[in-house]
Design a protein around this nucleic acid. Structure first.
Lengths: 196, 196
DNA sequence: TCAGAAACATACTAAATAGTATTTTTTGTA
DNA sequence: TACAAAAAATACTATTTAGTATGTTTCTGA
């Protein structure tokens, strides 16, 4: 990797951290250049605006994370229902990229930017669609292998499961405790079992 | 109601509208005084800071709405499971205080303010606790009247249902369509039926 | 009716903000 | 090694922001 590329990526990573913790609006360019120890000239050499950087965070930081942590695990696990449950269990209880007190980055972004920036909206929609596709495919796989009932509506279940995940992240953030995650996971298990 | 009180309430209502649409950070005091046609002097006569106003919105606008639209309906409906389902159906599909493109006000607030303002956090937690209590009570009522199985964990189910609601609001906001609400509601029904 | 307080209006300020113009340094390569 | 382009540093600007200081008007009760 060229040095310039490394700088760019470093800015994105640290900026993401800041934004994940503090929110997009409340993170200023000055905050970012202070923690990255990069000058304003360097920052604006790599990004022509704050919003362009925001989009780059979605596409170059969140997207790979989605692929690695939200989609791949679904494909490696044999049993589809276990795959979904274990994914959630890992994301909520074990993953240490995501912190309970800061919620879900994609969800935070959605809440904060969707009202006023359609570019962010589009980029976030792409992420969501990709995750949706992966979960739906997993359920369809289960239907084929007879571990999930044929009458189960894969898309509906996906939406139901996804919304639960986003919501519980929000609730965990509010209460600043993983306790709600445990309750959520128990009921998720019961719900998933009902699809057998 | 005294005239001054009316002014205060009018500011809160219009400010809430603005914040619900644009977000808290991106709504400036100048925005608020422009749309309320109240001068800065008047604004700061009623609220000593923007954050105090934000808290007042939670306590004086959101709280009554919670009581009227999120809690009361649970208590008037006879059958507990129907009560919960109908509540969600009403909130998502019929209520016109809440708009799909702007998501859930409480959820928006949580996402945006929780990271940096513990006062907001506390106030929002109170709202959530109240709703939690109401849903849990409804489920317990169902267990007593034998419309819900005795082995159902009321608190867990409450958390599961609530997280689904928050999440689907977020998803609806992202996709700007009530279509996801329909899918969510269908699976919610199936899930609730499994508690019988 | 009039004094004093409540309610509102006007004009400002200091700080923060995103972004720019210009210069300097670093780097790859002919 | 020279030199052009890439990368980064510096110093600035215009605007927006929350908030204040100091009025003026309106109301209310003795």
């Amino acid at each position: 990797m060229k040095k310039a590329e490394a700088t760019r990526l470093m800015i994105l990573q640290k900026a993401f951290e800041l934004i994940y913790v503090k929110g997009y609006q409340t993170t200023s360019i000055d905050d970012i250049i202070a923690t990255t120890k990069v000058t304003k000239g360097a920052f604006y050499y790599h990004f022509k605006s704050k919003d362009e950087m925001g989009l780059a965070i979605i596409n170059e930081i969140l997207k790979p994370t989605l692929t690695n942590s939200f989609i791949e695990p679904l494909q490696t696990e044999e049993n589809p229902l276990d795959a979904i449950y274990n994914l959630m269990d890992n994301l909520l209880m074990k993953n240490d990229f995501l912190k309970v007190e800061y919620g879900c980055p994609a969800s935070n972004f959605t809440q904060e930017m969707t009202p006023w920036n359609s570019e962010f909206n589009k980029a976030l929609n792409v992420l969501t669609q990709e995750w949706t596709k992966a979960i739906t495919a997993t359920i369809e796989r289960g239907k084929k292998s007879d571990t999930i009932r044929k009458d189960v509506n894969a898309k509906q279940v996906t939406i139901f499961v996804m919304s639960g995940y986003w919501g519980i992240r929000n609730l965990g953030k509010l209460e600043n405790s993983k306790k709600v995650y445990v309750s959520y996971l128990k009921q998720l298990k019961i719900y998933l079992d009902s699809l057998k």
